[in-house]
Simulated assay, not measured.
Amino acid sequence: MPRFMGFVRMEEGIGTPPKALFDAMDTYIGEQAAKGIFLDGGGLYGTEDAVNFVVREGEVSRVDGPYAEAKEVVGGWALMQFDSLEEAIAGNKEFAELHAKYWPEVSMVATLRQISEGPEEPAG
């Protein structure tokens, strides 16, 4: 079964989602977990304590948050397993629709990426 990673991107510092969204997500995630689709996931804290290690031209540098230039940040993630890409896309749309219904004033992007079962052939 193919596995997928879901990400939620939104503007940082927009506040806490409404309780209705939390309740709807609890139900949705519970149903998905019972079906063996939702494997793990959760929300992420803001970037105020984030740490990045940047590799550039063979050098490593540390860059600590918060990041003033960040317009959107990853606010949550999920590891899921579906029978097909089509089912994964439908599930991700359903997830996004919960946000539209229960938190309509927020702008967010729900991204779905298939996980490589690699290893892929190295370049060069």
Rank of each mutant, 00 (worst) to 15 (best):
L44K: 09
T16M: 14
F22Y: 09
G43D: 10
E11I: 11
T47Q: 12
N52W: 10
T47I: 12
D40K: 12
P18Q: 00
I37Y: 08
K35I: 00
G42E: 02
I37Q: 13
E12T: 11
D49F: 10
I37L: 05
I29W: 04
K19Q: 15
I29P: 03
G15T: 02
L44W: 04
G15I: 04
M25D: 05
G30F: 11
T16V: 15
T16D: 12
G30Q: 07
D23Q: 05
A20R: 09
I29R: 10
I29A: 05
I37F: 10
I37W: 07
L21S: 04
A24V: 00
E12V: 05
A50R: 08
A50G: 11
D23A: 02
T16K: 12
D40C: 13
T27G: 11
I14W: 05
A34H: 03
T27V: 15
Y28T: 01
E48P: 06
I37D: 06
T27E: 15
A50W: 07
G42A: 05
K35E: 10
E48R: 14
L21F: 04
A33Y: 01
I37G: 04
D23Y: 01
I14N: 00
G36L: 12
M25Q: 13
E12Q: 15
I29T: 11
A33S: 09
K19H: 09
T16I: 14
A20D: 11
A33I: 01
F38Y: 10
T16S: 15
E12C: 02
A24R: 00
G36E: 06
D40W: 09
D49H: 14
A50F: 10
L44P: 01
G43V: 05
F38A: 03
L39N: 05
E48F: 06
L21I: 00
D26C: 09
F38V: 02
G43R: 08
M25L: 15
G42Q: 02
V51N: 06
E31M: 10
T27D: 15
G15F: 00
Y28Q: 10
V51M: 12
T47V: 10
G41W: 00
G46C: 13
K35S: 11
E12P: 14
F22L: 09
D49L: 08
L39M: 08
D26V: 12
D23W: 00
E48T: 12
K35M: 06
G36M: 08
E48Q: 14
G36Q: 09
I37R: 10
D23G: 04
N52T: 14
A33Q: 03
V51D: 03
P18K: 00
I29L: 09
K35P: 03
E31F: 06
G42H: 02
